Amino acid sequence: MTACGIVLAAGAGTRYGQPKVFARDAVGTPWLVSVVAALRDGGCDEVLVVIGAEAVRAQRLVATVDGARPVVATDWDTGLSASVRAGLAAVAATDADLAVIAPVDVPGMPASVVARVLQAAVGPGSLARATYDGRPGHPVAIGREHWAPVSASVHGDSGANRYLSTHAAVAVECADLWDGADLDTR
């Protein structure tokens, strides 16, 4: 079974003050580097990075990240759903059985969380999501059989949360590994 990571990094980051694809931690490491590394080290064979806002500049950054390949969501400004659709369309062209999706604003996510979620995703019909003390979080693993229905179900700023809830995604408790925090503001 093969897994492909998808980093959602297309937005303008209005609450953050800049596109989060360019955000860096306190020592200057791009968040993107950390999230891509967690996905790869956690078991993803390849990582796609969905970009949109400032796409030319973002492509240059993605090109510097080992193991990452950019995917442009041309309609990124219509909301998060555009990024999800672009990522799932790109992964459909690979031989992956699973897509493991995480936003770029989870630079603290360890590879152990990705590995645990992947362990719960047993094939192309799987749906699994990390939870933190019972609260849904990232990453999520979506089997190939769900890619088209998930793409059809997302709209505007809504991601796959509703689909995962209504289709009984396996909840994978990860609070012992990380707090699940995403970073929306500086």
Rank of each mutant, 00 (worst) to 15 (best):
L48M: 11
V49K: 12
V49P: 06
V50T: 05
I51Y: 05
I51L: 13
I51W: 07
G52P: 09
G52S: 13
A53S: 15
E54F: 09
E54M: 11
V56Q: 14
V56S: 12
R57Y: 11
A58S: 03
Q59V: 11
Q59A: 12
R60P: 02
R60E: 12
R60F: 11
L61S: 07
L61P: 02
V62A: 05
V62N: 05
A63E: 06
T64C: 13
V65S: 04
V65Q: 12
D66Y: 10
D66I: 11
D66T: 08
G67P: 01
G67L: 11
A68V: 02
A68F: 07
P70M: 03
P70Y: 03
P70K: 01
V71E: 08
V71R: 05
V72D: 05
A73T: 02
T74A: 15
T74V: 11
T74N: 13
D75A: 15
D75K: 07
D77G: 09
D77S: 14
D77M: 12
D77F: 10
T78I: 08
T78D: 11
G79V: 04
G79R: 07
G79D: 03
L80S: 06
S81W: 03
S81I: 01
A82S: 15
S83W: 00
S83Y: 02
S83C: 06
S83K: 02
V84P: 06
V84L: 12
R85S: 13
A86S: 05
A86P: 00
G87F: 11
G87W: 08
A89K: 06
A90Q: 03
V91I: 12
V91C: 10
V91D: 03
T94K: 03
T94D: 05
T94M: 02
T94F: 14
D95Y: 06
D95Q: 09
D95T: 01
D95W: 05
A96F: 02
